[in-house]
Amino acid sequence: MNCLEFRQQILVDPYTKFGPAENHLSQCERCQDFANEIKNLDANIYQALNVSVPEGLGAKVHLKQSLSEQNNPHKPQLWLALAASLMAVAVFMYQLVAPSAVQPNPTSAIVSLVNQLAEPVIAHVNHKSHDFYAVDHQPISNTDLQSVLSGLSAEIGTKISVENVLYAAICPVDGTRATHLIVKDGSDKYTVVLIPDHAPSKAFEIDDELWRGYISPHPAGAIAVLAAATDNHAVARIKEINDQYIQSFYLSAER
């Protein structure tokens, strides 16, 4: 290890005990001075960062949580509505994506769901942009994807490849701005919806006539993954795909 490498390493992380660096350090006086300077700098950085915490902050957090629990009992209705919204989106998509496939009377399914739906969702499923579903999908450009995701300050993590995203849009679902993706995984297609702020207390399955799905909580909201019920291969992997997205969806506006 030479002086430059040593200095680079210590500027990145002055705390690790480096094997090759220790040799260099014992032989090089100038780097000893440098190492001391950086350790001294870091000690001061620590002191500068270590601002005082308001007294009783932990107790205030406990109190606020207890109060919110009293004022905010569970809202199962909201979740029913959301699941219904997703299904309506899914049913509508299914019609467009797979018009030739077997359709166990989707119209009546939509009609019964429409009765429970909020106006924005109806607007959503009827929106012109969703004609896109009828088009044969090509992977979208990274720029397009990022521009959709930046609307939510969301980004797909490195674990999910952009080439697998066939469609991306910001869609109103149950009054919130959801990120709506169509992705492929091998030969399987999935609809992935990230719903900010809407948080189920635990994961649950959607078992619709036409669609199978899985919705699970995420620190940023909820992630729903849907596959056509007729596609056994895709259906079998819904939870796995959901897991992948839970791990890979970051909401990091601040890179």
């Binding site: 308001p54 205030k60 957090v61 949580q65 919110s68 948080a199 635990k202 995420h218």
Partner: peptide
């Protein structure tokens, strides 16, 4: 900062199972 800590813990409570 205090608000952010409060919000963070409220959210953590809701998602503790995850």
């Amino acid at each position: 900062s205090e608000d952010l800590v409060q919000e963070t813990y409220l959210r953590a409570w809701r998602f503790l199972d995850s």
